[in-house]
Design a protein around this nucleic acid. Structure first.
Length: 518
RNA sequence: GCGGGAUUAACUCAGUUGGUAGAGUGUCAGCUUCCCAAGCUGAAUGUCGCGGGUUCGAAUCCCGUAUCCCGCUCCA
């Protein structure tokens, strides 16, 4: 697939009402997107299919719809508050950004190991250092000598330079404040009364931070925590027996350093997550079970199931809570990337929350007569990423040749029928001879059955077919001259463009059948 | 966050050395049309991303800024 397919999909998304840039008339907002009429349907269909598969079809999984704003202690316990505020530093020479606590150590005054990929870069770096820091370094091939480690105690992990920006905190969680009073008022009062007088910059920041933190709340960076926090309530209310799962769909928020690839990585996104609580000894089996179940699910709706892959996390990339993790990755136009992660979170989260809350988060096995803290297997999928994946998977340009030998390109979204925003287009072949009236009756029957259907009488029939191909409508029903004689209409398949006649009376049933069996 | 590119109608894009904006597609109305886009007639739609500056005059030159794309970087 060519790289400009993304451009075409982005364009189609806007033109046909799948995805718009947020706040577009005001110049947009970085990484925020609105799902238009068709996008809203597509996203909802994906989520509904997920929910049906994860919750409705399983005896041992139940749902939850939790608050996005949670007590800050939740994030202290989960480790997000600490982990989301690591000091980051930019290298002023090679522009690399890195975490200060993970950088190579170098004592003050010790020779800095400046080294670059090639001589050219070394030369450019030497010139930059001379210009900006008035320091002439000795250049030997791709290495530079003469720079000394600073009081910082570490150097750039990429080029070894000690020329670094200030450490800056990047809070990856969105912070806001709860309560009718603005913490800024309290800060202003404190400053006015001279309470902050004589504080250093660092102390001042801390003092202000303390006031701010009193009313601070955070938007969840993952939906998972609520399922751990409500573990005991749900287990008791529903009398669940381990193993069992809690599923949730909802928005999460992260101040991503870099947003990229349209809706792929954005600050506000939607997740479909399930926490599956099991006996520790069985965690390995359940991890295998769920990663296979999830892969099957993704492939079920795909035209190109071979583009979905497993990738096991290396030990050094595992999250702090995870023991083992498989990503389901997809071959996006820009390369392979994450779509879902299936992790063994062990008993990390329940134990942390038990510890921080002082509550017992255990399970009592009535048969074995013993208490234990369950292990958790977590399949965490991106719903909005899923939407993007299925759009890319479905996007197709076909070369057609008509009766006169003229070639023509057909753009078609081969969305799985149950994912398609509109299931049926009802079209009078021409706008006369009572066809529109008949067509209206047909489309209303679909609406009464709750099937998303559109009536369209504009332009030539071929154009209407193409328009619906482009938004992925799987079935077009056409009322023609024969309809009023024998009460039959044609049903056209989006992918094959083949038509067959069905009776008007059975049209809804036919489509319902097709949707069920697709 | 860095580097590069871009931003002109709903979409894709023209726009000359600076002189008050065009095309195709799409949309809408009507005609025509009995089955796979681009038949006929007509119509609507532009703060040229936004804000400054230079100039008699800026879509065009300069500065800033926002957003998008690509690459790096980053990414629990």
């Amino acid at each position: 697939m060519s790289a400009d397919v993304m451009q075409k999909i982005i364009s189609l998304c806007k033109r046909r009402g799948f995805v718009f840039q947020s706040s577009e008339i005001y110049g947009g907002l970085k990484s925020a997107y609105d799902y238009g009429p068709l996008g809203a349907e597509l996203k909802r269909n994906i989520i509904n299919e997920w929910w049906a598969d994860m919750v409705h079809r399983r005896e041992n999984v139940v749902g939850l719809d939790a608050s996005i704003i949670m007590q800050r202690k939740v994030w202290e316990a989960s480790g997000h508050l600490a982990g989301f505020s690591d000091p980051l530093v930019d290298c002023l020479v090679c522009k690399n950004r890195f975490r200060a606590d993970q950088a190579p150590k170098l004592a003050e005054g010790v020779e800095a190991p400046l080294s670059f990929a090639d001589k050219g870069q070394a030369k450019a770096a030497a010139e930059l250092i001379e210009k900006q820091f008035s320091l002439t370094l000795e250049r030997r091939g791709k290495d530079l000598h003469g720079a000394k480690g600073s009081g910082r105690g570490y150097v750039c992990p990429a080029c070894g330079s000690p020329f670094l920006s200030k450490e800056r905190m990047f809070n990856l969680m969105f912070r806001t404040s709860i309560g009718a009073t603005d913490p800024l008022d309290e800060i202003a009062e404190a400053m006015e009364s001279g309470k902050f007088a004589g504080l250093s910059g660092r102390e001042l920041r801390q003092a202000i931070g303390e006031i701010n933190e009193r009313s601070a709340v955070y938007l969840r960076p993952e939906t998972a925590q609520a399922m751990f926090v409500q573990f005991a309530n749900i287990q008791q209310a529903m009398a669940m027996k381990v193993p069992f799962g809690i599923a949730q769909v909802g928005k999460s928020f992260r101040n991503e350093i870099t947003v990229e690839h349209f809706i792929f990585r954005s600050c506000e996104f939607e997740q479909m997550e399930m926490e599956f609580f099991c006996e520790p000894e069985t965690a390995g089996e359940w991890l295998d079970f769920w990663r296979n179940a999830r892969m099957d699910w993704w492939r079920r709706y795909a035209n190109h199931p071979e583009k979905f892959h497993f990738r096991e996390h290396e030990a050094d990339e595992l999250a702090h809570y995870a023991d083992k993790c498989y990503d389901i990755e997809y071959e996006y136009p820009w390369g392979q990337g994450e779509l879902e992660g299936i992790a063994n979170r062990t008993d990390y989260d329940l134990k942390k929350h038990a510890q921080h809350s002082g509550q017992k988060l255990e399970y009592f096995d009535p048969v074995k007569q013993q208490k234990f803290v369950p292990y958790v297997i977590e399949p965490a999928a991106g719903a909005t990423r899923g939407l993007l994946v299925y759009l890319i998977d479905a996007y197709c340009e076909e070369q057609l040749t008509d009766a006169n030998g003229k070639t023509d390109t057909r753009v078609v979204l081969k969305l799985h029928p149950r994912l398609a925003p509109i299931k049926v287009a009802v079209l009078p072949l021409v706008k006369k001879d009572g066809m529109p009236e008949l067509a209206r009756k047909v489309v209303e029957a679909f609406w009464q059955h709750g099937i998303a259907a559109r009536y369209d009488e504009t332009h030539a029939i071929g154009r209407r077919y193409r328009r619906h191909d482009e938004i992925g409508t799987p079935y077009c029903l056409t009322i023609d001259g024969q309809t009023k004689d024998d009460q039959t209409i044609t049903i056209r398949d989006r992918d094959t463009m083949e038509q067959r006649r069905v009776s008007v009376e059975s049209a809804v049933r036919e489509v319902e059948e097709l949707l069920r069996n697709s």
